[in-house]
Design a binder for these strands. Structure first.
Length: 490
RNA sequence: CGGGGCGUAGCGUAGCUCGGUUAUCGCGUCUGCUUUGGGAGCAGAAGGUCGCAGGUUCGAAUCCUGCCGCCCCGACCA
């Protein structure tokens, strides 16, 4: 095995190599697209299960809308089309035919579509055009719908999980009879995202509101959860949009309220994507590979048998199988790696690379002493314990690991979240360590753009919590209502 | 779309300036033996339209022309 890149020398190379070496994903033969491999997909399935359960607990149901959207739909909401037009894949024909020279196939010019179809970059357009038929009265509201699907955005530059041409996500689309209800919904979903990302993926976040330039195309307000990666760059981990009546107006979705007056419906949309996988990797992992939070790890405990003779092999594996059964019965996800084609050292390294939280090793000596060896992925701590203590030790460690990697990430975020009051320091920090810099801003798009041009930093959000003391803009010196969060972002 | 670079075995590469025997090396793969408590050792083997098409030449991975693809930097972006 050639040695892997290190975080300090080349974070980007480290990330890419890690994704591939841990067996999460690889670049597909199609430009900008990725193949999510079974191990990576298993993590995504963990996330899906957790989020889906939470959506349902808050009254949402799943549905499915078409991949292809008529071009005219997309253009109905002006801001929406302006935001997405530049990155849409367009279907223009519906048939191929054999080439004249017999070499392969060509697009059949006779099969041109009357109206081009857009591969969805997001589904507001097709969903609101459908809601028009579903909603007549306040009795039809609210609609609390979610869909799990893929979308396509033709990005210029792509990176595994962080930005791919096609990605998987979840998009919630709700419709409400009142503004208050829609506003309540959007905040509910923001808090739900924050709670799950924190409690399960062990990622600390800053919740806030996007500035006008970073707002979702078609939204009145975009709420965001922002995370900080180990290299000091920020990553938007999820968004929830308050759409007001914009899409209702664009698609003429009206209803009669309890007073008998016709009004436009109020909407929200909210999503998390496979990009969360990127956040998870970049926040917790180390130079030896992935580090997974136990709650979402497809394999929580891996068992590695150690033996010389066939007789030893049989005995060791039988013992491990019994322990596996015991752990399974307490709900722990255990893999017993009984492959005879790899040596223990190879397996140790492999599961470290894959981020399995706990490793159990058992050999002839352990059989004799009635012990097992345990190793923690996050701290590399090892210990040998009596077999009888395994259940308790595993349960304790899984909890400790989950808590520890969150604490570690939180501490790193706190160390790199700094109040900055002069622009020289701001520029210097952005050019070196990065991080979340809390600074005053005069509230104008112009200032935001100038700071971005000079430092590559954008306003990640106007935080919901924290200090609300007024001050003066770090760039223009004009009055500022409160500090906002600046960072360079993925 | 602007600027730069690269296409040689599954992956990473040498060779190209200055054309000349059987295209180099490493990793991985396969076989055998020895190994197995931290990514094993030795021996042997398989694996190539040198991105594609055309041209120059006795002879092209190498020179010329065209095309295709990919990567990096910028603008865009969950």
């Amino acid at each position: 095995m050639t040695s892997a890149p290190k975080r300090v020398s080349d974070f980007s190379a480290w990330y890419n190599a890690l994704v591939v070496r841990a067996g999460l994903a690889e670049n597909a033969s199609v430009r900008g697209c990725m193949v999510i491999k079974p191990y990576g997909y298993a993590i995504w399935e963990s996330l899906q299960t957790i989020f889906d359960r939470a959506f349902k607990e808050t009254g949402h149901v799943n549905g499915y809308f078409p991949l292809l959207i008529p071009k005219s739909y997309l253009s109905k909401e002006a801001g929406h089309v302006a935001g997405f037009a530049k990155e849409c894949a367009v279907v223009t024909h519906y048939r191929l035919k054999m080439a004249e020279d017999g070499q392969g196939v060509v697009v059949d010019p006779a099969a041109k579509l009357e109206e081009e179809l857009i591969v969805r970059p997001t589904s507001e357009a097709v969903i609101w055009s459908t809601y028009k038929n579903w909603i007549q009265s306040y009795r039809d509201l609210p609609i609390l719908l979610n869909q799990w699907c893929n979308v396509v955005r033709w990005e210029m530059r792509t990176r595994l999980f962080l930005r791919t041409t096609e990605f998987l996500w979840q998009e919630g689309h709700t419709a409400h009879a009142t503004q208050e209800e829609a506003e309540k919904e959007v905040l509910q979903m923001l808090h739900l995202y924050e709670r799950i990302v924190r409690d399960y993926i062990a990622i600390p976040l800053i919740k806030g509101i996007k500035t006008e330039s970073e707002r979702f195309a078609g939204a009145e307000t975009t709420y965001t959860i922002e995370a900080l990666m180990q290299d000091g760059k920020a990553l938007q981990a999820g968004t929830a949009h308050y759409l007001g009546q914009r899409f209702a107006k664009a698609f003429e979705v009206t209803f009669t309220n309890q007073a008998g007056i016709r009004d436009y419906v109020w909407g929200t949309s909210w999503g998390i994507t496979t990009r969360l996988m990127g956040a998870l990797i970049m926040i917790h992992s180390d130079d030896d590979g992935l580090v997974l939070p136990p709650k979402i790890a497809p394999i929580q405990v891996v068992m590695v048998p150690i033996y010389k003779t066939e007789h030893e092999r049989t005995a060791v594996i039988a013992q491990l199988a019994a322990l596996q059964k015991q752990l399974n019965s307490q709900g722990v996800r255990v893999k017993l790696d009984d492959r005879d084609t790899r040596k223990p050292g190879y397996k140790f390294a492999e599961y470290e690379e894959k981020g399995v939280p706990i490793r159990v090793a058992l050999g002839p000596l352990d059989l004799q002493n009635h012990t097992v060896e345990l190793a923690r992925r996050d701290t590399k701590e090892k210990c040998t314990i009596p077999m009888g203590d395994l259940s308790q030790q595993v349960a304790d460690w899984l909890e400790m690991i989950q808590a520890h990697i969150y604490e570690r990430a939180l501490s790193l975020q706190q160390q790199r979240t700094l109040l900055v009051d002069d622009y020289a320091t701001f520029k210097k920090l952005m050019a070196t360590k990065g991080g979340f810099l809390l600074a005053h801003w005069d509230g104008t798009t112009e200032t935001e753009a100038k700071i971005k041009a000079e430092t590559k930093a954008t306003i990640r959000c106007i935080p919901l919590d924290g200090d609300r003391t007024p001050g003066y803009c770090i760039y223009s010196g004009k009055p500022s209502k409160r500090r906002v969060v600046f960072a360079q972002a993925y």
